[in-house]
Every structure is written in C-alpha cells, then in structure tokens.
C-alpha cells in the first residue's frame, strides 16, 4: 500500500481524523487571518479608487471571494457526497454535510454584498442579472440539502439522502447557470460587465487573490471545527469519544 492510500485510510478513521483536524485547525485559522489582514489592508487602503466606480469597487474584495467560495464549497461537497453515496465512509458523509452550511453562508454573503454593490452601480439593490439570480438558486439548493439532512431522525441516513441530493444538484447547477444566462439575454436584461479580467489592475488583483486564499483557509478551518463536533456527536458510544470528553473536562 502506498503512502497516499495509507494516509487516506487513516484519515477515514474518525478518531484519527479528530486528532488530525484538531492539530491543523489553529494553523488554518492563523493563515486565514493573516492573509485576510494583509488582503484587507491592500484592498481598503493601498488600492486606489477605481476610475469608474470610485470606492464602491472595494466591495469586490469580499463579494468575489464569497461568490467563488460558494461554488468551490459546492464542488468539495459534491465530491464528498459522491464518495459518501458510493462507498459510504462516515468521514465523507461528515465532510459533505458540514460543508453545506459553510457554502450556504458564503452564498448568502455573495448575495448581500452583490446587492449592496448593485445599488450604486445599477441604482437598485436587486436586478435579475444572470449572476445574482444563479447565486439565489444556488442558495435555495444549499437550503434544500441542509433541510433534507435534518429531516431524518438518523443523521447517517439523512447524510446519505442529502448527499444524493447534492449530486443531483451538481448535475443541475451548470444547466441552471446556462439557462439563466440564456433567459437573461432573451429578455434583454442587464448585461453589465463591471468586471472583466482585463480591467483588473495589479493593485486590485493581489488583495483580491489574498482574500480568496484567506477564504479557502477559513473554509478549511471552519470545516475542521464543524467535523470535529459532528464526529463527537456521531460516535457518542465509542471509547475514544469518552476519553476525549474526560480529557476536555480535565483541561477545564
């Protein structure tokens, strides 16, 4: 057995994952906060105001990372969900189900910041533009997955059912996106492109990239924290959990 496979099987075991997650979580937090601090300074202070949008463009430093993360988290969740449905390891179920609320949070942020950006740009908080509308549908899909997970009495059964829904959603998401784009052109909606890759100045780009990477590390940190709690709850009868609880009590 090669090293990767060994590592994969070790991480698949809940007690090992619990320790591993607890070990890397502070590191993920530190990196996320450091990157965010530098990124925010670069975005809010160093980057000059945009020629067209003035200082309103600074919303991109939270909007774009959140929008990217809303899809990235769905991708991670869909892969774990696929593994969870096919091979049924407990860890894949936990990772998929604990990713869903984080993804929903990022989608909500993308929606709120997007409409706050839209007000000075389009003159209204909400327009049925293709990107905002797709985000809204994505938010509903996340809510459906979370709702289905909690509708079952048995969390493992709920996780498998919700994982299957996440897979159906993953097939459907590109179709939703392209149908919304088509619908938007059909009705001559707002086809405003404030943001093409060519228009990004380097002074905007590096804070944006830092914020995006910070968001990824935040996701990692939050996922580790959530998974640890979920494992304690799922494995409540096991000896390692009892040991863990005793140790936690001893520490204070």
């Amino acid at each position: 057995m090669n090293a990767f496979k060994l590592w994969y099987h070790k991480l698949g075991s809940p007690p090992y994952f619990y320790v591993f997650a607890g070990y890397i979580q502070p590191w993920l937090w530190t990196i996320a906060l450091l990157l965010a601090a530098v990124g925010l300074y670069g975005g809010l202070v160093l980057a000059p105001p945009d020629a067209l949008q003035g200082d309103a463009f600074r919303i991109i430093f939270v909007h774009v990372p959140a929008a990217w993360m809303s899809l990235f988290v769905y991708g991670v969740m869909a892969v774990s969900a696929f593994v969870a449905v096919i091979w049924r390891p407990k860890m894949a179920e936990v990772l998929a189900m604990e990713s869903a609320p984080i993804g929903a949070a990022f989608t909500l942020i993308a929606l709120i910041t997007g409409s706050l950006w839209g007000k000075p740009m389009w003159g209204t908080y909400w327009t049925w533009d293709a990107r905002l509308t797709s985000e809204l549908v994505l938010f509903f899909i996340y809510l459906g997955i979370i709702g289905l997970y909690h509708a079952f009495d048995d969390p493992r059964q709920g996780a498998r059912a919700a994982s299957f829904l996440a897979m159906i959603g993953a097939v459907n998401l590109p179709i939703v996106h392209y149908s919304v784009v088509w619908w938007n052109t059909l009705h001559q909606g707002t086809t405003v492109h404030y943001f093409g890759p060519s228009s990004i100045a380097p002074s905007m780009l590096w804070p944006l990239l830092l914020m995006t990477i910070a968001a990824k590390f935040y996701y990692g940190a939050s996922l580790m924290g959530r998974s640890r709690v979920a494992l304690l709850s799922l494995e409540r009868g096991k000896d390692w959990v009892a040991d863990e609880v005793r140790g936690d009590t001893a520490h204070g």
Binding site: F140, G147, A151, F152, A161, G169, N172, V176
Partner: peptide
C-alpha cells in the same frame, strides 16, 4: 429521497423548485 421522513411537503418544494428552474 424524502420517503423516510415524516414532514416532507414544504421540504419537497424547497428541493424541487430550484432544480426545476431550467
């Protein structure tokens, strides 16, 4: 997917409607 759950009416619409958008 919701067959194993008791309350499924509202949940079903939350699951179906976004996927029915296209």
């Amino acid at each position: 997917l919701t067959a194993g759950t008791r309350r499924s009416g509202m949940l079903l619409s939350l699951m179906l409607l976004p996927l029915a958008v296209p």
